[in-house]
């Protein structure tokens, strides 16, 4: 039963993942990603990782995907052609193939590396999943405190970088098209 469910969910994850890269409209890509995240979260649930499953839904489906939808709707992106106009580049064809192949090989390296470093035997302590939140928090904030903080620092650096880039773009835009302030008519109408 659990095995069958797993295969169904795994197929769903993959199918939705394919949908992300093949969909013509950006909005459908986001929705496919949402479906993929859902299936993945169900797989976590199936393996007993309740906390991970709920966090996955909360963070990705609840917040990040909403942000993606917001951006897509704000730019009102219809299909790929408009996306090219907005971003100035396209990920279709050969470039997409190269990007996909790179991502796939990186993923394979990760999986194989993980397989070599940790033997694939069920850890008795984690047999029902790492649901003991106290244990999870203790491990996260003691043994893995450094990687945890490093990851958050990386996110902070990314955020600052993005803000810097966006701000620079806006200043050059404003410089390229100098806009004179419209003359104030308030005084005239009042007079």
């Amino acid at each position: 039963m659990a095995d069958t469910l797993f295969y169904i969910l795994a197929a769903g994850t993959l199918a939705c993942g394919m949908g992300v890269v093949t969909a013509r409209m950006p909005l459908f890509s986001v929705l496919s990603l949402l479906g993929s995240l859902f299936c993945l979260s169900a797989i976590y649930l199936l393996s007993g990782f309740q906390f991970l499953a709920a966090t996955q839904l909360l963070v990705y489906a609840g917040a990040i995907m909403v942000l993606f939808l917001f951006v897509i709707m704000l730019l009102n992106l219809g299909d790929e052609a408009e996306l090219q106009g907005h971003l100035g580049f396209s990920l279709s064809g050969k470039k997409g193939l190269i990007a996909g192949a790179t991502a796939l090989s990186l993923g394979l390296v990760g999986v194989v590396g993980a397989g070599y470093s940790t033997p694939f035997v069920a850890n008795p302590a984690y047999e029902r999943g790492v649901d003991d939140l106290n244990a999870l928090a203790t491990v996260l904030f003691s043994r893995y405190a450094l990687p945890f903080e490093a990851a958050s620092l990386l996110l902070l650096a990314t955020m600052i970088g993005v803000i810097t880039l966006a701000k620079r773009q806006r200043t050059t835009d404003a410089g390229a098209h100098p806009q004179s302030a419209p003359p104030s008519t308030d005084g005239e109408t009042a007079a």
């Binding site: 929705l31 949402l34 309740q50 709920a54 966090t55 909360l58 489906a61 609840g62 649901d131 939140l133």
Partner: peptide
């Protein structure tokens, strides 16, 4: 009765916004 019912209720309840967003779009 879940151990993580707080997370569950916020995670699932937060998905209702998709209806509004997609309906609007």
């Amino acid at each position: 009765d879940l151990d993580i019912s707080t997370l569950y209720v916020v995670a699932i309840g937060g998905l209702g916004i998709y209806g509004v967003i997609l309906g609007g779009w």
